[in-house]
Amino acid sequence: MKSVLKKIYIALIILFLYAPIGTLIVLSFNASKTRAKWGGFTFRWYISLFQNEEILRALFNTLAIAFLSSFAATVIGTVACIAMMAMKRRTKSILMGITNIPMLNADIVTGISLMLLYISLGIRFGIGTILLSHITFNIPYVILSVMPRVRQLNVSTYEAALDLGASHINAFFKVMFPDLLPGILSGFLMAFTMSLDDFIITHFTKGVGVDTLSTKIYTEIKKGIKPEMYALSALIFITVLTLLVLINLSPTDKNKRRSE
């Protein structure tokens, strides 16, 4: 009885989180252009989506920025984590404090502060400024997921590799890197997700005429969202869901085998 109630509770929360997503997927098949009415089932928006250059360019921008910014953030963040290993407690905690600023600070403040920076440096607003901003708010996510792995790292294995004749670089990639990899990957994924979902910071640091999906949707809200947008987000969501299900199914099998 108790466990049934618990399951119902979990289901309700998940329903709450996923109800809008379901709604959007339904809307992507809605023949009527307004959200309020159901005008019959159609694939039309999925077809016209691929002819809508503006949306496709925004999609490309979004993906490119998400990939490049999380990649750069992963490199900078991972290197910083390894460097922090050798630091004194005090220096390390100061650096971690700085790392926490973009996490704890309001997105709107981060956004306007970067906007003011670019203006005073005379940097032209565009893809570049968005990219720099996204790298900035992505680094903390990488550091926070790599840092625990670095703490668990066994320095003696690294020294053992050196002892066995490996160079520093070799020892790092052969011995430390595999241990850090799960943290690096989850940091990258987290950064990618955050970059993809960001609206506020992009809103303040994008140039005129350059749009990501978020900012495109924001401008469309006033004019009315094009149904192609629903189709596109449904596609993205289903793709990610499928990928995650696949990823999640395979490694657990491996773990099971190992534990048996």
Binding site: L17, F199, Y218, I236, F237
Partner: peptide
């Protein structure tokens, strides 16, 4: 990780759209 993913997954659909969907609901 699976539990964490369930709650992060919605973020892969744009938050403006998701919030907008609440209008419809």
């Amino acid at each position: 990780n699976f539990i964490i993913l369930i709650f992060i997954l919605p973020m892969w659909m744009n938050f403006l759209l998701r919030t907008l969907a609440w209008q419809t609901l």
